[in-house]
Structures are given as structure tokens and as C-alpha cells.
Design a protein around this nucleic acid. Structure first.
Lengths: 229, 229
DNA sequence: TCAATTCTTGACCATTTGGTCAGCTTTATC
DNA sequence: GATAAAGCTGACCAAATGGTCAAGAATTGA
């Protein structure tokens, strides 16, 4: 007797898709919590509601499963990393980036922690990505920031340190949620909290780096109001 | 034949102290890299240059060893968390805190990562600390920040989010060193880099939160110059 | 000097690890 | 309804895990 109900889905490969999804989700949590070595297929299988053999059947090996999760997270990442040009409004760009980053950490907390765990462990599987795509992206942004600084649209801060500042502070609320909750005594961080945090970070970064709108911009859109005061 | 040279040291307990130190140092690195579950006593023993049995002889169990490392790191932590009063100079206090935090992450990177790994894993061993000492400390600081805001010495930002911002950004350079190095293409972060980062963070936080010196302060000390511009 | 204490470590243990595989059942295709 | 393909999984494996222990070696203190 099959445990899964033979419901509606009739498309080919439906079973595979459903089981893979269950495994990926379970694995993301376990890897995030215990790291690559500390995670066990047994626990992943249990959380996915499947026997261990079945996990191996779909994923091949622990390593392949892990790499697949990393790649999925990097893909989400890349979807955010749209490029910018020196002609863009700095206030708008920085605000949008902070917002997007927080939203990503929020919508995929396990993936975010998985990434953090990988980096903590020395990034054995991500060296290439860090030194390739991500590095190019950072240098691209840094170049634009420098042009903004030259045009007086922001203070001449080191663009790389600025990027890392945004990075770390936004990441923090996903990766260290336990710490934030423990210290604040909350049970969860709700959407209002996140909105507060987002506005706070935008305000501090924009004001702290003296980021200005280029001449000719009149009405600041809603999303940035917190940054003016 | 003993492997350790029977040199100078003649004080009682010298052997124990030396071996425990070797074990603790090795273990800090391994736990930081692989997390509690992922770390193996075998590897710790190897890095300490001792047989596994010897590690157990000194530390009792994996769990005890881990807890001991956490406590050691928390003790270092606590040494930084000196209390402040509303009469202090906000600029001075914030700058000193950022500096101290960076210095700690810098001087004990493995311990810092160990802490991060513990939090990522849900802080199973640190719940008490987070909800006790650390929470009290945060609330204490938050109260002072609020008074500063009332006296117009800083913007009325949420003090808790400010503390977390400082926390996360300073921690980042220890925990995510791999990422920073990979992306910047450096081999190491030297003292000059760290000084740059420190000044940048101090500047952004102080300017970004509109933190001012109280009336009556004339000459800003060297350490803060970067924050004025 | 000699007994007491501390230190050292290989052998060993039960359990868990990632992974294989053969044989089964279910689903898809014509 | 038959054949093929995909899905399923318990039994099994070698290796590694945290931990115990006994017996000997080195150090200490009187």
C-alpha cells in the first residue's frame, strides 16, 4: 500500500518533483543547523518522511544533495544581483538593495543559514563562486559607488566595506535569529519588525555615508521616507 | 620515552596545563569549522598532537569540551561588556565599543566563529546566556541610548537594532573572513585593513545615527577623527 | 627510595555514518 | 493487458563515531 495519496497530479515526473522538493526542504534545514559534516542523511530522511534509501535514490549522495542546495541558494542570490549604472539614483539603489537582501534572508532563512555555515566552514564548495561571479559583481558596484562619490552624491567611503556592511547587517537577522529572539525576548520577528529593521538600516547607511539624490529628483517615493528626517 | 621535552617547567600541574591548552586550541578551530556535530575528537586529537584517549582523559567528553570552549569565549566577551552611564560621551562610547568588538573578533577568530556556529545551530547550549546576562546587558545599553536620544545627543533610533547592527557588522569580518578574502582577492586582512574597517564603521554609525558629543567637549581624541569629516 | 598520584595509550565496544544493491511494487506507454 | 520504466526500501557493508578500560610509564612528594 502506497503511503502517498494518488491524488490529482497526473503529469509525468510529478512523483519525482514532489519527493525531491520534500528532500530539499528537509535537507536545507538540517544542513543549515548542523553544517555539512554534522548533518546526517538519516535525519534528513526522517524530516522528509522518507526512508534513507529513497533520499539516496533521488539525490545520489550527500555531497550532491548539498551542492544542489548551495546552487539553488546562489540562484536566488543571483536573481537579486541586478546591475546598476552610475546614472541611477544612489538613494534608490541602496534602499532597494537593502530591501531585497532582507526580503531574501526572510523568505529563505534556512538557505541563508546554509550559506553562512558554508562560509564559516571555509567555503570549500563555494570558493569558485566567491572569487568569480560574486567578486565581479562587487567590483562592478564598487566602481559605480566611486563615481557617485566623485560626483558628490555620497561620501568617499570604501565601496567594498560599504557592501560588506550592508551584507552583514541584513544577513544577521536571518542567520542569528535565535540570538535576536533570545535577547529581545520575542517569539518571532513579524513583518512589522522586519519593516522597522529595514527602515533603520536604510536610514543609517544613507545618512551615514552622506548618500544624496541627484539634482532634479523631486518626490521621494514612499519606500525611502524613513531615510529622510 | 616521553615525546615532550622535560624542559624548564617544574611547577605542579604543568603537564596538564600544557596539554589542556593544546587541546582547547585545536578543538576551538575544529568546532568553529565543522560545528558541534561535525567536529570529531579524532581530528581534534590529531591537531593537538595527542591520541584520542588522551583528549578524553583531560576533557571527559566531547560535550564537556565544547561547553568549556563556549564558556571561555563568553568570558572574553564579558570582559568587553563594561557598563556605561547616560553621562558618558556617546561618541566615545560607541567608538570604543566598535573598536573593542573588532579587536575581539580579530584576536580570537576561531572562538568568534565557534560562537557563530553555535547560534546558527539554534544556540542549544547558549539559550540561558542569551536570555540572561546578554539580554540584561542589551537592555541596559538600550536604556542609556534612549536617554541620549531624549537629550538630543543622537537620533531616536531603536537602540536594540543599533546594537545588532554594530554586532553583526563587526562580527562579519571574523566569521566571514573567507568570503571577504575571496571577494576582495586578498590573502589576509592586515592591521591596516582592520583599522580602515574600524574607522569606516565608526563613521557610518555615528553619522548615520546623528550621534553627537555633549556640550563642553573640545578636542576630539585621535581615535574618532575618522568620524568627523 | 618508594609509594601515591598523575599521565599515557592501544585495544575494544556499541552505535551511527554514507552508501550499495537486489528485488519488489507502482506507474507510464502502446 | 503486457512490457518497460520509474519508484521504493530493507538488508547489508566498511568506516568512523564517542566513549571505556585496564595496564603500564612518568612524575611527584615524603
Amino acid at each position: 500500500m502506497a503511503k502517498a495519496d494518488p491524488t490529482s497530479e497526473h503529469e509525468a515526473g510529478a512523483i519525482r518533483r514532489r519527493n525531491e522538493q520534500a528532500i530539499l526542504q528537509a535537507a536545507e534545514g538540517v544542513f543549515a543547523r548542523h553544517g555539512y559534516r554534522g548533518a546526517s542523511l538519516q535525519e534528513i530522511a526522517r524530516q522528509a518522511g522518507l526512508p534513507k534509501s529513497n533520499v539516496l535514490y533521488y539525490m545520489g549522495s550527500k555531497r550532491k544533495l548539498y551542492v544542489r542546495l548551495l546552487e539553488r541558494m546562489m540562484a536566488r542570490w543571483n536573481a537579486i544581483l541586478d546591475s546598476i549604472s552610475p546614472e541611477d539614483d544612489p538613494v534608490e539603489v541602496i534602499s532597494a538593495f537593502i530591501r531585497a537582501k532582507i526580503r531574501l534572508s526572510r523568505s529563505h532563512p534556512a538557505g541563508s543559514r546554509l550559506f553562512a555555515s558554508e562560509i564559516l566552514g571555509g567555503a570549500p564548495f563555494l570558493q569558485e563562486y566567491l572569487q568569480g561571479e560574486l567578486r565581479d559583481w562587487v567590483e562592478n558596484r564598487a566602481a559605480v559607488f566611486r563615481q557617485w562619490a566623485e560626483r558628490g552624491l555620497m561620501d568617499p567611503v570604501d565601496p567594498v566595506w560599504l557592501i560588506f556592511l550592508i551584507w552583514s547587517s541584513t544577513q544577521h537577522y536571518a542567520d542569528f535569529e535565535t540570538q535576536v529572539l533570545g535577547i529581545t525576548g520575542r517569539k518571532t520577528l513579524d513583518d512589522d519588525d522586519l519593516e522597522d529593521i529595514t527602515r533603520f538600516l536604510i536610514q543609517v547607511v544613507i545618512k551615514g555615508c552622506g548618500i544624496k539624490r541627484p539634482a532634479g529628483v523631486e518626490t521621494p517615493p514612499e519606500s525611502i521616507q524613513a531615510a529622510q528626517h
